[in-house]
Nucleic acid binder design. Structure first.
Lengths: 347, 347
DNA sequence: CTGAAAGCGCTAACAG
DNA sequence: CTGTTAGCGCTTTCAG
């Protein structure tokens, strides 16, 4: 019942501790016979190596850190608006870690902090993780990425193309915006409004570019009046929607850079007596709220859990082999079509 | 830039390693002068103790584990229905840990697993946490609680009265149900339906009892036809709502044991041409979905982040002093009144 | 009040 | 293929 250490296993199996270590780590140079004897002792005693001791003795901690923005995360938690980014990230990364005997530690650091570097260093010193997952907007912080690179720590940047500076795992936001616009064009919409995301996030720019390029490509002019700023909050969505719907003629469809602003648009539309999907609405992120709104919103689903899962796998692989091979991986998004988009009603 | 250890600090400050350790741990027997000298060296070098080494040397790991049910958690993640239990738990527990230099590690184990004990032991062996937070339904598993007690590990049971068997941090589900029923009675409703929660959770029983006692206390008879089973899923809510609304006369109000079943009821009502709040609806949990539905649902808010925060504080305190003082702490719920409840329309 | 030495449980490096 | 030894960075114990 008391603590079982590698030594107990070694004694029980009648081998040296190092041999037990070899077996536990799937190292070569152990006969089948000895391996089995050790395994039996491990089973019988219920031995599980101490992560702390492994870290101390070896060069691995079996720990991955996911670094998230403090303000965004806490605001989401507090607001209770149901943004499930964190959940999806945990879903992907934790399960990937578990599968390989790793643990994920989730850390919050304000992206705006003046002493960001110091804070991150403190986390690294305390935890000594085998790799770190950077989420937006941290993943865009090149100074941070480079600092981590100097420590020779494997890094995955989520949501951005890394282009050689660490691993990148992302979806194509530009193509997603194009797809959303094409969907609306196919439904016959000609005047399509766009609500921008917060400029703090690279994805916001990509989404705007996709919106523009889809229009241009299909022979439509870009009307700057149809592009209004937002910052991903509900409040900014209200302002943006009011501006768009006050135009004459108003757009018959709106693409919002995230769900919350789309939900705000739904709200404004209903206040103005406009029916959705006569006013068609598409959003980004596909968070739980868009399935519950009436009507449900057509939305671009980000592969968050998949990205996080790949991120964890890449880091574990890197720490296992001791070799980084930085590259980018693009994961597919999906347009979830729901009741908020419909063929244009001829006025 | 390289790794800074306690030895570097000791050298820089011109003291013994042990003295640095004393300063870092706020131990007595260090003169102000020496303490300040050490602190300066710590600052200058950016020293942060390694958690792994602390665990190895001492008897604390500075790690807390939160044990959650695997199926529930993963199902919620997959469904994308926006249940924010995990988020709220992290919100409370992580921040409480952070404030004291602790880390929270989030672990998933199936409550149904035949080898539950072995799995939990494996987690303890690997992580050697200073305390463990049990969430429902794990928190109800007395065998598990006792096993942990034998290891002399501080345990907090969330969502149940522990009554001396470990710490308990919970809200009064019975009183909450009473309050919900009283709210409906005050609005003039006389026939109030009740949709039960999954019998796997103790809270379900408490909620049913509260429903009954509020009725009895106010002089109403209990009509068993008005009490229908459910298991917290949307699907079970649909079945339950259909049964209730097929009664003659049907109830004019329904209390559902969680949001998802209440949302299902809203769905069924709309299908049957019934208007909410003419049919009034109250739910438990106050997850994000109930704020987005039309109308928003009147709901009992559980103090999840507060409970998790207290849980972490209790464990840290226990591990710091080395003394458990098991007791229960009840935290207040709140009835959030929204558009789904209104005075009874006289038929 | 301060310090020196021992040891936590493991893996790395090296021997056999 | 297997074992021995040293040491990771801390805290504990015990001396001064």
């Amino acid at each position: 019942m008391a603590k079982v250490t590698i030594r107990h296993v070694a004694e029980a199996a009648g081998v040296a501790v190092k041999t037990v270590s070899r077996v536990m780590n799937d190292e070569p140079n152990v006969t089948r016979d000895v391996r089995e004897r050790v395994m039996r002792a491990v089973e019988a005693l219920g031995y599980v190596p101490s992560m702390a001791a492994r870290r101390m003795g070896g060069r691995r901690s079996y720990l991955l850190v996911a670094l998230n923005d403090r303000e965004n995360t806490i605001n989401n938690w507090r607001s209770g608006r149901g943004n499930d980014w964190i959940d999806q990230m945990l879903h992907g990364a934790m399960l990937a870690c578990e599968a390989q005997g790793y643990r994920l530690l989730f850390e919050l650091v304000s992206a705006e902090a003046k002493d960001l570097d110091r804070r991150v260093m403190a986390i690294l010193s305390a935890l000594q993780p085998d790799g770190i997952i950077l989420t937006p907007p941290h993943s865009q912080n090149l100074a941070l990425v480079e600092m981590l690179g100097r420590r020779n720590l494997p890094v995955v940047r989520m949501g951005v193309r890394a282009e050689g500076v660490a691993y990148g795992v992302y979806m194509n936001d530009r193509a997603a915006a194009e797809k959303a616009v094409e969907h609306l064009l196919e439904l016959g919409h000609q005047r399509i409004g766009f609500i921008e995301g917060s400029p703090r996030f690279e994805a916001s720019r990509q989404r705007l570019e996709g919106y523009k390029s889809a229009l241009t490509r299909s022979g439509h002019a870009i009307d700057d009046a149809l592009i209004v700023p937002g910052d991903f909050t509900f409040e900014s969505g209200v302002v943006a929607a009011e501006r768009l719907l006050a135009l004459s003629p108003p757009p018959t469809a709106i693409l919002a850079s995230n769900d919350e602003m789309a939900l705000a648009t739904l709200h404004v539309a209903s206040r103005l007596g406009l029916r959705v999907p006569e006013l068609s609405l598409v959003s980004f992120d596909d968070t739980p709220g868009v399935r519950l709104s009436v009507p449900g919103l057509t939305s671009i689903r980000q592969p968050i859990s998949e990205m996080a899962g790949r991120a964890a796998e890449l880091l574990i692989e890197a720490s296992r082999t001791g070799e980084h091979a930085p590259h980018d991986e693009e994961l597919p998004f999906r347009l979830e079509v729901r009741g908020s988009t419909a063929p244009r009603v001829q006025g």
